[in-house]
Write a protein that binds this DNA or RNA. Structure first.
Lengths: 244, 244
DNA sequence: CCGCGTCTTTGCGCTGCAGCAAAGAATGCC
DNA sequence: GGCATTCTTTGCTGCAGCGCAAAGACGCGG
């Protein structure tokens, strides 16, 4: 658990609370609770009542949605400082689950508390809007991809996003060390199957574009991945497409 | 154009402004502008700077996103009273286009103006958050569908949503009269092609589930559409699926 | 009322990808 | 260190749905 002072210092880094002065922050901190959970445990699960707003402090969280018949979709990862996607302010159930991919710590406000804080410090609400707008934007983009692009390109896009959000720059390219990322995960991010993902990655590995192992992945040639994601020349997947 | 009084009366119906008193509303109205456009014209287009927040007053608006290579995705329709999805508060370009499907009128605030209003009347910001959360929720659901369900079921879901948002109840079922809805539109909503949509609708028409013509569509048996959308018994598409 | 443009239908061939199955790797646990 | 578990790879088969082509229906404007 955290001391008040420590908590305030942390909250200063949180985009949701940008623009608040030290006194304000202290008030906001006073209304917060703190939760820590182990790897593979859930901050909340789809179906339970959405009664709180979460901001991740340390660790890494995976937001997923699942269907009655056990098909899962991986929506996004949350990095420290980010707010978990909020689903409802009206006591509806969560429509997604938040699972820690490793030990994680989050700051939590009850929904009515947070609404009161927003009424008192409107810039919190505006910050939240910004963050929601950005999420909506990204999801729309992925939706369009899913509707219009083939699998290989979607996987390439997924890697680019992951590298941006959680990639460590190395001598050559990026490695995605922060997140244990299985083929299954990638499949659930891109709307395909683990088999197809495995085949695609195998191809890229043969071409020296990536390096990959069990739950690990490194991008050796970011530009090549980019080329596959867009429709640039230099895409390697076998057939060249001669422009007429 | 509208008189101030008339505008205030209209704004009273707008969810975004719920909770504001008459004086507040008058102030909000004073900061607003009004735009009217013809069918097939755009309130704004993807790529131009997002400098305003829109609330539809009368008419019907279609939000679409398109790729460099002319593939289009139909994100949603906006009904009177609804806020257009906001894409950015920071001077980024719009990532979608807003086209009137018929003569439409919208109330418009410049982004900095709206932010100032939100700082002054925080409940506007909270209302906006609610609306954004709902959008995000729906989009997530559609994303999951696109990733996990087959085309026929996605189309059924699209019809259900349309009926809820814009359907007129008739003796039997619903007719979707408000929106000229082509096969192409439905395809762009569900991530498929107009051919496939046409074939699916033809099948349902044979089964008496719907009635459809050029840009028109009526649902005769809502429960049958529901049955296809979920996996209920009574789905008609040829093969029964005997539960083992 | 005719002709033209737009929307819709349907036949047909093709392919990207799903989805078993089964054989490897890598890892963790006792 | 060895066994069990979990993750990955890869061959093979099948089919849902894409997408061309061409004909038909509808509705609008003149």
């Amino acid at each position: 658990m955290l001391e008040r002072q420590q908590l305030v210092r942390l909250l200063r880094q949180v985009p949701l609370l940008h623009g608040l002065g030290p006194n304000d922050l202290s008030g906001v901190a006073a209304a917060a609770q703190c939760r820590e959970i182990e790897r593979r445990r859930f901050f909340f699960r789809q179906g339970t009542i959405a009664d709180a707003v979460y901001v991740l402090n340390r660790g890494r969280v995976k937001l997923t949605q699942s269907t009655p018949k056990q098909a899962h979709v991986l929506l996004r990862f949350i990095a420290p400082g980010e707010m978990f996607d909020l689903t409802s302010l009206d006591g509806q159930p969560y429509t997604l689950s938040a699972e820690a991919t490793r030990w994680s710590q989050a700051v939590v406000w009850k929904v009515p508390t947070m609404i009161a804080l927003m009424e008192r410090y409107p810039s919190i609400a505006v910050n939240a809007l910004r963050e929601m707008a950005a999420r909506l934007q990204e999801l729309r983009e992925r939706y369009r991809e899913l509707a219009t692009e083939r699998v290989e390109r979607r996987v390439a896009h997924a890697l680019i996003r992951l590298a941006r959000e959680a990639g460590w720059r190395r001598e050559s390219g990026f490695s995605l060390v922060d997140i244990p990322l299985s083929r299954q995960d990638l499949a659930e991010m891109t709307g395909t199957t683990l088999y197809t993902v495995s085949r695609i990655l195998a191809g890229w590995r043969r071409d020296g574009i990536i390096e990959s192992g069990r739950q690990r992945l490194a991008i050796l040639q970011p530009s090549a991945v980019q080329a596959i994601a867009e429709d640039l020349p230099g895409a390697t997947s076998g057939d060249e497409k001669p422009k007429t």
